[in-house]
């Protein structure tokens, strides 16, 4: 179990970023289809930054109280809270399609905006039935992996 926050820059090395996310999420107890969903959603958030969010940003991942959170921040700050469409946009090229997809894949998607920075938070509840048992309580006393 990991409960410390990790952070990586968003660059065009998306394969390495996905590996980092997957490694952390697996250690946090996320498995199977929900692990796939988080990796797909986090990748979509990262490509949103590359495509529409100024081309640079950071991705941070943390786990607290059984909730795995991925925070994807750009250095532009145009994206506003409430921008996640509830229905699938018809155009696949716009930013809304990726946001809609994240909403379909994750337990929750929220957007926080301050001047010069928008942050998308993707949240996934970690299954209590994970292999490492009561991961949330064990995690705090365990050594970081």
């Amino acid at each position: 179990m990991v409960d410390h926050r990790r952070q990586w820059p968003i660059t065009d090395d998306l394969a390495a970023l996905r590996e980092n996310i997957q490694r952390y999420a697996v250690q946090a107890g996320l498995t199977g289809p929900r692990l796939d969903d988080l990796v797909i959603a986090a990748n979509e958030a990262a490509i949103n930054v590359l495509e529409h969010g100024g081309g640079a940003g950071t991705l941070a991942i943390s786990c607290d109280g059984g909730v795995l959170a991925v925070d994807v921040a750009d250095h532009v700050g145009v994206l506003r809270p409430g921008a996640v469409p509830s229905e699938r946009p018809s155009g696949r090229g716009d930013r809304g399609f990726g946001l809609w997809l994240m909403g379909e894949l994750c337990d929750s998607v929220t957007i926080d905006r301050v001047p010069g920075q928008s942050t998308i938070r993707l949240s996934m509840q970690v299954d209590d039935g994970a292999a490492d048992g009561d991961a949330a309580s064990l995690g705090r006393s365990a050594h970081p992996v």
Binding site: I40, N43, I47, R92
Partner: peptide, 12 residues
Amino acid sequence: NFCDSTGIRILL
């Protein structure tokens, strides 16, 4: 092993 929305767009 992986395909994102951009990959699907290209396949379309």
